[in-house]
Design a protein around this nucleic acid. Structure first.
Lengths: 156, 156
DNA sequence: TTAATCTGGTTTTAAGATGCAACCCTATTC
DNA sequence: GAATAGGGTTGCATCTTAAAACCAGATTAA
């Protein structure tokens, strides 16, 4: 049988994964954030098959994560650019990168040193904060109106 | 051919996606954060096929995201609990949830109201911050030693 | 104590997804 | 006018997935 879809799931995480939760989509978004815009560049940087890239780009455009811009001075040259919705995936990508850097570091390579252009300083680790700006974990969170997260007995 | 794997990619995002980047793994982690621990509970909550769940749980255990704990008073009852590595995916999951809530809201359902246990207040939106704690976007970030992110010409 | 049930898991089967290579069409370059 | 680059589509072999059947060890029910 086919892969399941979650368009209509009542879980927003499932719906999000439906749009960017496959192997390639998030990597395409990542490279788009790096400035990649052209079909061939995505193809070469990612080492992805052309038909798959075609399909993923089309799906990302369809979902409003990318927009296809005709930059053909004469009609057949395109760029794929992030929309605001796509750019809004920034915290997701950064959080994932930091998690990867922390838990699966490259054996002989330093992690990317991302810095803020205004200050020249490295960016902070992405964290979940409470209303006062204090970092919190899974165990500190509950769903309003439901039992505490992760605490059927005792978290994890 | 099979799906590509990125174990050895020099990109930590790719390596991260290799571990939790398929359709089910992050949902399993999410439900684990909700407190789910047992095979049958995962299966019922997610509506996932048993063989796939088996495979995903095994892979998550193998990758150190979950640990399999034998709680069988007599030997054949297990729980799958988040490790610290797994719990550390919290910002990723929350960022993804917030993105989904913002851009793909459920038509007739309010998004989950997650709150901090200490203050009772809703948690903040996950964002990327610079060293001073100010929120920044893709366009504000550059890779130390490389051209500015997203600015081969002008971002997105 | 024997039967029914729960749990966690493997096997089988088919429908889908993926990767690769080959081919196409429209510019542009030489 | 031929070669090349960009952006796709098509076919095919291979791998993954979903669903359901099947299994074996514990536990509970009768």
């Amino acid at each position: 049988m086919a892969r399941k879809r979650f368009d209509d799931s009542n879980c927003s995480v499932a719906r999000a994964l439906n749009q960017v939760g496959d192997w390639w989509s998030l990597l395409i978004v990542l490279h788009a954030m790096y400035g990649t815009r052209r079909f061939v560049d995505f193809q070469q940087e990612l080492g992805i098959a052309k038909n798959i890239l075609c399909d993923r780009l089309a799906r990302l455009v369809e979902n409003g994560v990318l927009k296809k811009v005709d930059v053909g001075e004469h009609g057949s040259r395109f760029e794929y650019r992030l929309t605001e919705k796509g750019r809004d995936l920034f915290p997701v990508v950064i959080a994932l990168r930091q998690w990867g850097d922390k838990w699966n570091p490259a054996p002989d390579e330093a992690p990317l040193d991302l810095r803020d252009r205004a200050t020249g300083q490295p960016i902070q680790t992405v964290e979940v904060q409470n209303a006062e700006g204090k970092p919190i974990t899974v165990r500190d969170v509950f769903v309003s109106g439901e039992p505490t997260l992760g605490s059927k007995k005792d978290p994890a």
